[in-house]
């Protein structure tokens, strides 16, 4: 089908949990592939062996800069994709690979890992560990509207994706500390509890209504900060939640 968008999936030093999250759209995944997405390249789910020219590339995992192949792959991904989406905590912020320090067999020199944004320009972030099927779905549908939609749809998709583009532009470091520095220290926290729910490792509890981060548990995925309503809140888009949710659900019928 000509009017699908072409999508690639580059797998670097990640755990394939992001791939599973994508597949966890269940029947919705089949609809996505039927109608909107032509999956050109994806190591686990598709058969192609090499990175191809695509509209949108999802990248899972961080880059081991001591591994020539990984560095080549991320560069090639950038060259061959119109839009690069960093999928999951590792690609966006390093996640657990931030803790890596090498010295392990059979490649003791594999010690330095960087989020992809430290090596290439990244357009959109989907943080979290694992990222959620619904977030991947929403971004995929919006990317489709951005590239193939009417003027109105393009505008909506742009508005929707803008905060995720800003996250990508903002940097490659996020953990519970971002909640402290960018929300609490900035006098913006109102104690809703979102961060505690979003944390995938139960590192955040709400003490007297404010987040307490157990930094020895935090894995640096960035979910708490980006889910926080005070990290970004684009009222114009979110106030249309009903219509947008309905449109996405209808698109996946």
């Amino acid at each position: 089908m000509a009017d699908k968008i072409t999508v690639g999936y580059t797998h670097l030093s990640g755990c394939t949990g992001c791939t599973v999250a994508l597949a966890d759209n269940y029947a919705g995944l089949l609809t996505l592939l039927d109608k909107y997405v032509d999956l050109k390249y994806m190591p686990t789910l598709a058969d192609a062996r090499h990175i191809q020219q695509v509209d949108v590339s999802f990248v899972e995992g961080s880059v081991c800069i001591n591994d020539k192949l990984a560095v080549e792959e991320i560069k090639e991904t950038r060259e061959k994709s119109a839009i690069v989406v960093a999928l999951g905590g590792c690609a966006c912020y390093g996640n657990i690979t931030r803790f890596s320090r090498g010295g392990q067999q059979n490649q003791p020199a594999h010690e330095a890992y960087l989020p992809i944004g430290d090596l290439i320009k990244v357009d959109v972030y989907i943080p979290g560990c694992a990222p959620t099927p619904q977030m991947i779905r929403n971004v995929a549908v919006m990317a489709y509207l951005l590239l193939k939609g009417t003027k109105e749809q393009k505008d909506l998709a742009t508005a929707f994706l803008t905060p995720l583009m800003k996250l990508a532009a903002a940097g490659t470091s996020a953990c519970f500390c971002e909640l402290m520095t960018n929300v609490i220290n900035q006098g913006l926290c109102m104690g809703c509890g979102t961060c505690a729910a979003a944390c995938p490792v139960n590192a955040i509890t709400m003490e007297y209504g404010k987040p307490q981060g157990e930094r020895d548990l935090c894995i640096k995925c960035g979910a708490c900060y980006s889910q926080c309503p005070r990290s970004f809140f684009n009222t114009d888009v979110i106030s249309q939640y009903e219509a947008i949710n309905e449109a996405i659900m209808a698109a996946l019928q």
């Binding site: 990222p131 099927p133 619904q134 929403n138 905060p163 809703c192 509890g193 980006s226 309503p229 979110i238």
Partner: peptide, 25 residues
């Protein structure tokens, strides 16, 4: 049930479910 900011959090969780898998619906 919640305050206006908590309603904002709920809607953001539905539209941008970054750390809120299988919650929105």
């Amino acid at each position: 049930v919640g305050t206006p900011c908590q309603m904002q959090a709920v809607r953001k969780a539905q539209l941008y479910p970054i750390g809120m898998r299988d919650v929105g619906a």
